[in-house]
């Protein structure tokens, strides 16, 4: 507990002292008060002395209440604040979910979408978008902070990935017959979903981090327009980090041309990471880890936050004011 305008207290004390001194110096007897002789006629009465004691008690109460009203008002005016140091978590992330919807991926996609549907509930300031691709990329919804809509769409996506009846239309347009799982094209489509406002700065000047959660097994069949490497270079160029989730890491050996190794290399060139998945249940933990690294990357400078705490002094002032009113009423002043 600290006082923001601490210098108000000595100033208030000085003012109160000056007022008291002036009142003391200028004290003149009440001209309407008249002289009376033989006042012992009244003052020696025990009843009068009892009444005088009561009167003095109430005067003391009034004086105490007035003093505490002054003090608490001065303290409240000096703005008592609680200063806490916080490291603000900057919530200006853009996350694009980039999901390969070829048949082998549906359980991993469902898990990713499910986790993000849960996360979207707690988002505040982040933007989230969903792009699905197979041979063609489809933007299901662009980067948005309309979390209700995003959740709705993510729920639809999950139903579609889980193969619920009547949801097959969700995946329409991802297959054009030019191949299947064109990863480089898909990633490029995802990258084009970010606004083109230069490297890493958003439209209002504050930097926003950009990340792509790319779920794919990197089994390309067909001829993509862009290779995965080109797309990764594009991502790096646009300062987009790619986090790759691979549910089917079936590499033979550690050759660099193996699909898993390629995906790992692509993700790591953008500053992201690569996570091979053993089962769909591991997705939430991985997404949490991704979230965490993104958050940690975006921790701002520690800031001192001052929270006003006027409740105590103002409460005391209110009580003292009420007591003062009661005492003045009792004293018939």
């Amino acid at each position: 507990m600290e006082l923001m305008f601490w210098w108000l207290l000595p100033a208030a004390a000085l003012a109160a002292g000056a007022a008291a001194w002036t009142a003391r110096r200028r004290r003149t007897p009440d001209a309407r008060r008249r002289p009376a002789a033989h006042t012992e006629r009244l003052t020696m009465l025990p009843e009068y002395q009892a009444a005088l004691r009561r009167h003095r008690r109430w005067l003391a109460v009034a004086a105490t209440a007035a003093a505490s009203l002054l003090v608490s008002a001065a303290v409240a005016a000096a703005r008592p604040v609680d200063i806490t140091t916080t490291v603000p978590e900057q919530r200006n992330r853009d996350i694009m979910l980039c999901l390969d919807v070829s048949g082998s991926m549906s359980s991993a996609d469902a898990a990713v979408v499910d986790v993000f549907a849960g996360l979207a509930r707690e988002f505040d300031g982040e933007r989230i978008g969903l792009t699905i691709f197979d041979s063609t990329g489809i933007q299901v919804f662009p980067l948005t902070d309309d979390y209700e809509y995003a959740q709705e769409q993510l729920a639809l996506a999950r139903d579609a990935f889980e193969g619920k009846p009547g949801t097959s239309g969700f995946l329409d347009g991802t297959w054009s017959g030019r191949g299947s799982s064109l990863i480089g094209d898909g990633l490029a489509t995802c990258l084009s979903g970010f606004p083109r406002t230069g490297a890493g700065t958003a439209e209002n000047g504050t930097p926003r981090s950009r990340s792509v959660v790319l779920a794919t097994d990197n089994y390309v069949s067909g001829r993509p327009v862009m290779t995965l490497g080109q797309a990764a270079a594009l991502a790096k160029d646009r300062t987009v980090r790619v986090y790759a989730l691979n549910p089917g890491d079936l590499d033979y050996g550690s050759g660099e041309d193996q699909p898993g190794a390629q995906l790992r290399a692509a993700a790591e060139t953008t500053g992201g990471a690569y996570y091979p998945l053993d089962s769909a249940e591991a997705v939430p933990g991985i997404v949490a880890a991704v979230e965490k690294t993104e958050t940690a990357a975006l921790k701002g400078a520690p800031q001192a936050v001052a929270a006003d705490q006027p409740a105590l002094p103002l409460g005391v002032a209110a009580v003292a004011g009420l007591v003062l009113c009661a005492a003045l009423w009792r004293l018939r002043l």
Binding site: R32, R34, P35, T39, E47, R332
Partner: peptide, 27 residues
């Protein structure tokens, strides 16, 4: 309203006290 002060020692007799019924009766 203003009450009296004593000529003997200038003590003030607050007017509210003297109008108290028990004090007035005793007086």
């Amino acid at each position: 309203g203003a009450g009296y002060f004593s000529v003997a020692d200038s003590t003030v007799l607050p007017p509210g006290l003297a109008s108290d019924a028990s004090v007035a009766a005793a007086y």
